[in-house]
Every structure is written in structure tokens, then in C-alpha cells.
């Protein structure tokens, strides 16, 4: 059992949870993930580590309430427990030697992009953050991003905050202004990462993406998280979760992510109904 030290709703559908897990906190690195189960009957879901505090012995995760498990997670309160919390899994983000990086975050993907931006900033790297949300009410971690970014560009689909448009528009602008990045790091919905990669490929800028596919054990056993990278089958849990974005077969990843969609939608509706009191 793992205690919830802190819980905060970052927007109506994004929850931040700080979990007591000293052993994991001691080893966690940006870019790695954990797997959790909310309760004894729960499913295992992977979440990328959003932050960690080695002194407090805690690991922070941020999740969007997109399904049954994340709804149950968001319904938990401070001081309560979740059944399982295991990690840190996957390969940490490569940050050494980078002098100038564009960090592109989309939606809740910003939660994962932030710790990397923070680490790069701490290492003395110039950080340009480009973050995109559907709408003003969904913006998360704005202050945190600003604090670690040399350039901060906020875009929204509907123009209610920042500049109306896509993260790719903002990135293209910066590239056209003549900024030369050692690397672009893109974390967000698959479709966003796909378009970021198309853009940066045209500009010849190395791009790293963080994949969050279907996963069960997270330790290289089930093979559910496989994806095609550079024509070869890779496993996000042990080879990733970060990959060279120009090599990733995004269309296949988008298809595979939909494998259980009908089940997930049914389970989500059922859970919401139960959480609202079973009417």
C-alpha cells in the first residue's frame, strides 16, 4: 500500500498525486515511468514520472481522467492509499551535453515534459518550451514551465489563451527565426508527436518522443507495448519510453492504442456512474 501525500486537481480532468515511495524516489530520473494499481482488483497502468523528491521520499504522477482507472485514481483523497506503485521503469531521458533544446508538450504530456525541461535548465541548457492545450481552462504547470524556460510559448486550439494554433506552428516560427536546437523533445498525444516529427524532419532537427503505449507488466515480459522504430520491433517498457521520433511508425502506434477502446469507453462510463453515486 502506498500513501497519497498530496492531491491536487490541476484542471477539471487532470489530477496530480504525490505518492510516498522512498525507494523509487531515490532512483527516479526524468523520462522514466511507474506502474500503479489503484485497488486490489485494479488494472495496471503506466504513468510517466512527473516529479520526485528524494528527501521527502515521494514520487509525483499526473494523470488525465480518460478512463475507469484514472477516474478511480482522481477520486482518491490525500492520506488514502493505492494498492501498488512500482518503478522506476524504462530508460531515463538523455540530457547530457545538450546546449539548446526545444521542449514541446501537448495537454497532459506537459506533465512529463516539465521534469525534463527542469533538469535541462538545471544542467545549464537553454530551454525553449512550447506548450499547447485545447483551451484556457486546461492549462497546467504554467508557472513551473516559465521558471525553467528561456523561451515559453503557449498555444491553444481555441485561442482562449496564448496564441491560437498548434504547437507545430509555434515550433516552426522558432525554427524559422533561426533557432538551432541540439534536440527537440516532444511529449503529448500521438498525433501531435507525429506532426512535430514531420516538421522537424524537414528541418533536420533530431527529435525525441516519449511513447505511452498499452502495457501490463512494464518489465519486458508481456510485449503489449511493442512498436516499430526504424523498421524494427521495440518494446517501450525496456527500450524506451523515449525513441528517435523520426524512426517511429506513428500510424501503427495510433492503431494499436485503439485496441481496447470500446472496452475502455464502457468501463469509463460505468465507473463515472458509480462514482457519482450509482444513479
Amino acid at each position: 500500500m502506498y500513501r497519497i501525500l498530496k492531491k491536487r486537481m490541476l484542471n477539471p480532468s487532470v489530477v496530480l498525486l504525490e505518492i510516498e515511495a522512498p525507494a523509487i524516489a531515490k532512483k527516479a530520473q526524468p523520462g522514466q515511468f511507474i506502474i500503479l494499481r489503484v485497488n486490489e482488483q485494479g488494472e495496471r497502468i503506466p504513468l510517466t514520472i512527473a516529479d520526485f523528491d528524494r528527501q521527502r521520499g515521494s514520487v509525483t504522477v499526473i494523470a488525465q481522467t480518460v478512463g475507469a482507472t484514472t477516474e478511480l485514481l482522481a477520486a482518491k483523497q490525500e492520506g488514502e492509499f493505492i494498492a501498488d506503485f512500482v518503478g522506476p521503469l524504462g530508460v531515463p531521458t538523455h540530457t547530457e551535453g545538450l546546449k539548446k533544446v526545444a521542449v514541446v508538450g501537448g495537454g497532459v504530456g506537459c506533465a512529463i515534459a516539465y521534469p525534463v525541461a527542469k533538469k535541462l535548465h538545471e544542467l545549464g541548457c537553454e530551454v525553449h518550451s512550447i506548450v499547447g492545450f485545447r483551451s484556457r481552462g486546461l492549462v497546467i504547470l504554467e508557472e513551473e514551465f516559465r521558471a525553467v524556460s528561456d523561451v515559453y510559448r503557449l498555444v491553444s486550439d481555441d485561442g482562449t489563451t496564448g496564441v491560437k494554433g498548434m504547437v507545430t506552428d509555434a515550433l516552426k516560427e522558432l525554427l524559422d527565426e533561426g533557432h538551432v536546437y541540439d534536440e527537440v523533445l516532444a511529449i503529448g498525444p500521438l498525433i501531435m508527436m507525429k506532426f512535430v516529427c514531420q516538421l522537424t524532419e524537414a528541418y533536420g532537427v533530431k527529435t525525441v518522443v516519449s511513447m505511452n503505449p498499452i502495457m501490463i507488466d512494464g518489465t519486458g515480459m508481456c510485449g503489449g507495448c511493442r512498436l516499430t522504430v526504424g523498421g524494427k520491433t521495440k518494446f517501450a517498457c525496456v527500450d524506451g519510453p523515449e525513441f528517435d521520433g523520426h524512426q517511429v511508425d506513428f500510424d501503427e502506434a495510433i492503431d494499436r492504442a485503439a485496441t481496447y477502446r470500446e472496452f475502455e469507453q464502457r468501463a469509463h462510463e460505468e465507473t463515472c456512474r458509480l462514482l457519482r453515486g450509482g444513479e
Binding site: 488494472e43 501490463i216 508481456c222 510485449g223 503489449g224 511493442r226 516499430t228 520491433t233 492503431d255
Partner: peptide
Amino acid sequence: ENLRGVFSANEFLTRINLM
């Protein structure tokens, strides 16, 4: 092999037995 509906036996069985 990466089409939807193709699974490793490990994934298929883990979902059934463990989960």
C-alpha cells in the same frame, strides 16, 4: 505482426491469469 488483434501469448495470458 503489429496489426490490431495480434498478441504475444504472454500478453494474452497475463491479462487472463494475472489480471
